[in-house]
């Protein structure tokens, strides 16, 4: 597991390095005046301030989702030329660059096989062996450990209500909820958890997704969300107590169990997703971008 993390870090540097230098080169080129539409498009990638990257056809970058606002062209008469439906639905910003598509595609397939060959059979066995009330206890336990990260991110995003809720939830569930095994805050105080993560925090600060990046095990991500994942993980109690009080092997075991526990509640979702998709890779990328966009906007 330790090796995996170092491997991922190394890869991040290897991958980001050339892109950074590319971005530098591009920024020295003269900047042509942009049309309004182009400006709109690049608001989404504040990290690549230079427009040449996405416009230049020679560039290795592929504008993956929507190069320009996708205007709905009515053909059958109704609603002809009434309004720009695309902008009305806020869809024009749901796009991401995909310059490392071969890598992403390979990782997508590895994750697919990991799910069907390893994760799903194990999670199904766990689901069969352990009754739902007991599985709920473990779900709550792991979820309670993620509360500190949510609390911090709520604070960073200036969501004081959310931060207050997470604080009360963490304190109440850790005590009255017997170490987090019962979601007493939800059952007794009716306080729902929030969904705040560091990738979202960065997004609210104006950091763009930059480009699409799929990791083994972790799945769809981007440089921003990869950093977000690492920061949130660092705030996860088992990440920092593992070196002092429990062995690395035990911490890894706990992480594996956490994954199985979470998966046991979602068996069938990925299958349904694949069944609905014509191109699962493209469908997942689109779903990821849209979902993260909403997370940042809320």
């Amino acid at each position: 597991m330790k090796q995996t993390y170092s491997f991922i870090l190394l890869l991040t540097f290897l991958l980001i390095g050339p892109v950074l230098s590319l971005a530098d080169e591009a920024s020295t080129e003269p900047i042509e005046p942009m049309t309004q539409e182009e400006e709109k498009t690049f608001d989404v990638f504040p990290m690549i301030a230079d427009s040449n990257l996405a416009r230049d056809e020679e560039s290795p970058f592929v504008v993956a989702e929507q190069k320009e606002p996708d205007k709905f062209v009515p053909i059958l008469g109704e609603a002809a030329g009434e309004e720009d439906l695309a902008s009305e639905e806020g869809e024009e910003a749901a796009h991401i660059l995909d310059p490392f598509r071969p890598w992403n595609n390979a990782m997508f397939h590895i994750n697919d096989k990991l799910y069907f060959w390893v994760l799903k059979p194990v999670a199904e066995g766990y689901k069969r062996a352990v009754s739902e009330p007991i599985r709920n206890l473990f779900y709550n336990f792991f979820d309670n450990l993620r509360a500190p990260a949510r609390l911090v991110n709520n604070l960073l995003q200036g969501k004081m209500n959310g931060a207050g809720n997470e604080f009360v939830r963490f304190v109440f569930n850790s005590t009255a909820g017997l170490g987090g095994f019962a979601d007493a805050a939800k059952e007794l105080l009716h306080i729902q958890k929030t969904s705040a993560d560091f990738g979202q925090t960065l997004g609210r600060y104006g950091v763009g997704q930059w480009f699409y990046l799929v990791w083994p095990m972790i799945g769809p991500s981007s440089p921003r969300d990869t950093l977000g994942f690492a920061v949130d993980r660092a705030m996860y109690p088992f990440s920092y107590i593992s070196y002092t009080s429990i062995s690395f092997g035990a911490a890894t075991g706990i992480a594996v169990f956490e994954t199985i526990s979470d998966t046991s509640f979602n068996i069938g979702d990925y299958e349904a997703f694949k069944k609905a998709a014509l191109d699962p890779y493209v469908s997942m990328r689109s779903a990821y971008v849209q979902n993260r966009k909403k997370a940042v906007e809320e």
Partner: peptide
């Protein structure tokens, strides 16, 4: 669903195909 528009998701797939 969770910010993911069915139409938008399929549109991306159809466009690529």
């Amino acid at each position: 669903i969770e910010g993911v528009s069915l139409v938008s998701n399929y549109r991306t797939q159809f466009r690529e195909i």
